[in-house]
Each structure stands twice: as C-alpha cells, then as structure tokens.
Design a protein around this nucleic acid. Structure first.
Length: 211
DNA sequence: ATGCGTTGACCGGTATG
DNA sequence: CATACCGGTCAACGCAT
C-alpha cells in the first residue's frame, strides 16, 4: 500500500548567534511541539489507513458471503436434481433388471437376502439406485457415513466389490455396493439399496473413507 | 479402548446334470 | 435330487487413532 513517510527531524537552519537563552529554549519547545504534532498526524494517518483496510475487509467479507449463499443455493438445486435423477433411474433399472438379467429374472434382491419369486412383495422391495462415477468424483463423498462390512470378487469382473452399510444411524437399512467397472476401470459402479431413515448428516462432506 | 478395514468362512438361493 | 457355484454377510483379527 502506498504510505507517506514523515520526516520527524526538522532542520530550522536558524542563526542562533544573536539569540538569548530564553529564545533558544522557546525555539526548542516550538521544535518539540512541531515534532509532536507531526507524530500525531502520522498516527492519525495510520489510524485512517487501518480504518480503510477494515472497511475493505468488511466489503470483501460481504462479497464472499453473497458468493457463498449463491454457491449454497446452487448446491441445493443440484442435489435435488441428482436425487430426482437417482429416483427415476432406480425406477427404470428395477423394471429392466427384471427382464434383462437371466439370474435376476429368477431372483430379486431384497435387503440382505435374495428371495424367490414367490416371496417377492412388490411394495417391500428396497429402492435400488445404480450410478456410475468417475474416479475423483463423489464416489465416496455422497454426504453419508458408511462402514465397510465385506468385500468379494464377483464373477466376470477382476475388481472386487465392496459392501458398505450406512453407519450414521444404527438402524438405517441402506446399503451400498461399490465396484470398478470391468469395461472402464476409471469408472466406479455404485449401487444403493434402500432409503435412509434419517437426515443427511453433512452434504458433500467426505465420508469416513470413501464412503 | 474404540472404531474401522481386511479377509476367510459360512449361509442360502440358484443352476445344472 | 444332489451338488457345485455364486453373491452376500459374519466375525475374528490387526491396525490406527
């Protein structure tokens, strides 16, 4: 910042040969007073600069707050959109799974146990959401806390499948399966089963691990 | 001490002969 | 029907905090 320098030493260039002692004393007092006033002026200038800096900081803070509010608003809108997409894809995947997959045509995923067709009750089937996430995206940052409880190598895929349980609420029934895609190893396939029976602990916050 | 990840064992449903 | 296979879960163990 531009700051003015104040020279506190003053050369009065006086010829003091003809002056009395009292005059010298007065001049010295005057000199001291002048120096003091320069000091005071410098202090005032410094205080003014601090006030200006504080005003700028307050303005900047206000701008940042407005930006944060906008970001938060957009985040909420995006989140709502993602949830809508996840729900619509869940609806379509659950119907396509019944017809396209040989095995799933004979069995349904229902909570922790697979059950036969006879036991399937349409309304009791947990919501299943399948999403594909690239490395570095929110694979493990979906806002919930997950605890890994198993890992298994699955047929037709060299990469193991990891099993997670929602650990935020002890009774939360939601499970999550994460597996690298066999076709594109940079893509994770994340399958959510069920619905959370609690609020999201902290949107976007990193989970215990990736979860 | 507590919580978490790893991993082999186990269980139950399905496919196959 | 017997059995192999498969996906999902359990639980012991070790590690990190």
């Amino acid at each position: 910042m531009g700051s003015a320098n104040y020279d506190s030493s003053i050369n009065l260039n006086l010829s003091i040969g003809s002056l009395q002692g009292s005059d010298i004393l007065r001049i010295k007092q005057l000199h001291d007073a002048t120096q003091q006033s320069f000091h005071d002026a410098a202090k005032l200038q410094k205080a003014d600069r601090s006030t200006e800096e504080m005003r700028l900081a307050v303005e900047e803070n206000g701008r940042l707050k407005r930006m944060l509010a906008i970001i938060r608003e957009r985040h909420c809108a995006l989140r709502a959109q993602v949830l809508r997409l996840m729900r619509s894809s869940a609806a379509s995947s659950s119907t396509s799974m019944r017809t396209s997959n040989r095995k799933i045509g004979k069995q349904e995923i229902n909570g922790s146990r697979r059950v036969s067709n006879r036991q399937v009750v349409e309304d009791s089937r947990p919501r299943i959401v399948k999403i594909y996430v690239r490395d570095g995206d929110l694979v493990m940052r979906d806002g919930y806390y997950w605890r890994k409880y198993g890992q298994k190598v699955i047929r037709d895929n060299p990469y193991p499948r990891a099993y997670f349980r929602c650990s935020f609420a002890p009774l939360c029934p939601v499970k999550k399966k994460v597996q690298r895609s066999a076709e594109d190893k940079s893509v994770h396939v994340v399958i959510y089963e069920g619905e959370h029976n609690h609020v999201q602990p902290s949107p976007g916050k990193p989970l215990n691990y990736m979860t």
